[in-house]
Amino acid sequence: MIIGSIITLLFIIAIIGIASFHTSVKKEKTLLFHPNKEVNKKITPEDLDDLPDLMKNYLSKVNIVGKPKYCNAVFTQKGEIITGSKKKWLPFSATQYMSSNNFGFIWKAKALPMLIRDKYTNGKGEVKVSLLGLKNVVLFSGQKVDQSSLGRYLGELIWFPIGFLNPDISWKTIDYRTIKATIINDNHTLEGFFIFNQNGMIDRFKTKRYRDTELEDFIGEAGEYQDYNGLLIPNTMTAIWDLKNGKQKYFKATILNYKLM
């Protein structure tokens, strides 16, 4: 009976911890999704006029014209993540939140017994890894995390192409398949390159992000494009460190469902 009581108590504590973790993320999501623009405004062809031809054609192909200009996206994922070359791939399930109402994203993942929350909001990045919501085993913040999280946000706009209309992003055509994006937010500046395939769709994204304390080349590879509620986005994405001793994949995610709100 004593052992059973201890197990029950631990189970209840874990449930409370997990609930607290999700409640905290829900509050962050509410702030990210808070409308501060014209909620009924639709995207028109004229909204694409000042973009490079590669991006203009791409955004037309993925069907953002006619979609709400200020909206939110919620999508779920399954995938695997690895934290080092000698570590094992860990499966995860996740929910990601992105918004054109406010600048940023929130990524909430479960790789039991760990709960993970990665975000970029209000000009700040933060990575939190929690043991069942009871104790933070990792909590990263600071200027390097801000820069790295901003790089993730820019690259993952492939999953939320409405965000490419963000006025904080400026564009420059490099060649017939490459454009450079420069994003400035809250005194942070980051450059990234979008490379398009022969069909005019974004094939991959390149930038520099911090890997631990070192600034490294980062690549995000897009998978096949699928229709999710009228929006064409890649069904998968793979994150790769392009290191001096070779490329190292560390994140693979597949979209399960997608909702534009």
Rank of each mutant, 00 (worst) to 15 (best):
residue 2 I to C: 01
residue 6 I to L: 11
residue 10 L to A: 08
residue 10 L to V: 10
residue 14 A to T: 15
residue 16 I to C: 03
residue 17 G to K: 08
residue 20 S to T: 01
residue 24 S to V: 01
residue 25 V to G: 05
residue 25 V to C: 07
residue 33 F to V: 09
residue 37 K to Q: 15
residue 40 N to Q: 12
residue 41 K to F: 04
residue 47 D to I: 12
residue 49 D to R: 00
residue 50 D to N: 09
residue 51 L to T: 12
residue 51 L to G: 08
residue 56 K to R: 12
residue 56 K to E: 09
residue 57 N to A: 08
residue 59 L to Q: 01
residue 61 K to Y: 14
residue 64 I to G: 02
residue 71 C to I: 15
residue 73 A to Y: 13
residue 74 V to N: 02
residue 83 T to A: 06
residue 84 G to F: 09
residue 85 S to D: 08
residue 86 K to C: 06
residue 90 L to M: 13
residue 91 P to D: 08
residue 95 T to W: 10
residue 98 M to C: 04
residue 101 N to C: 14
residue 102 N to G: 02
residue 102 N to S: 10
residue 104 G to N: 13
residue 105 F to G: 02
residue 106 I to N: 09
residue 108 K to S: 00
residue 116 I to W: 00
residue 117 R to D: 07
residue 118 D to P: 08
residue 118 D to E: 06
residue 120 Y to L: 09
residue 120 Y to D: 03
residue 123 G to C: 12
residue 125 G to Q: 11
residue 125 G to P: 04
residue 135 K to F: 12
residue 137 V to N: 01
residue 138 V to K: 02
residue 139 L to C: 11
residue 143 Q to E: 06
residue 145 V to W: 05
residue 152 R to C: 05
residue 156 E to M: 14
residue 157 L to W: 04
residue 160 F to Q: 00
residue 167 P to T: 07
residue 171 W to Y: 08
residue 173 T to P: 00
residue 174 I to D: 00
residue 183 I to L: 10
residue 185 N to C: 06
residue 191 E to D: 13
residue 192 G to H: 04
residue 193 F to W: 03
residue 194 F to M: 15
residue 195 I to H: 04
residue 195 I to Y: 08
residue 197 N to D: 11
residue 199 N to V: 07
residue 200 G to L: 03
residue 203 D to V: 09
residue 205 F to T: 07
residue 206 K to T: 07
residue 207 T to V: 12
residue 208 K to H: 11
residue 211 R to V: 15
residue 213 T to I: 15
residue 214 E to Y: 07
residue 214 E to P: 01
residue 215 L to H: 13
residue 215 L to Q: 13
residue 216 E to P: 01
residue 218 F to I: 10
residue 225 Y to G: 12
residue 225 Y to N: 08
residue 226 Q to K: 15
residue 228 Y to I: 09
residue 229 N to A: 10
residue 231 L to P: 08
residue 232 L to P: 05
residue 235 N to I: 06
residue 239 A to K: 05
residue 239 A to D: 03
residue 240 I to Q: 04
residue 245 N to W: 06
residue 248 Q to K: 07
residue 250 Y to C: 01
residue 257 N to E: 14
residue 257 N to T: 14
residue 259 K to V: 12
residue 260 L to K: 05
residue 260 L to R: 07
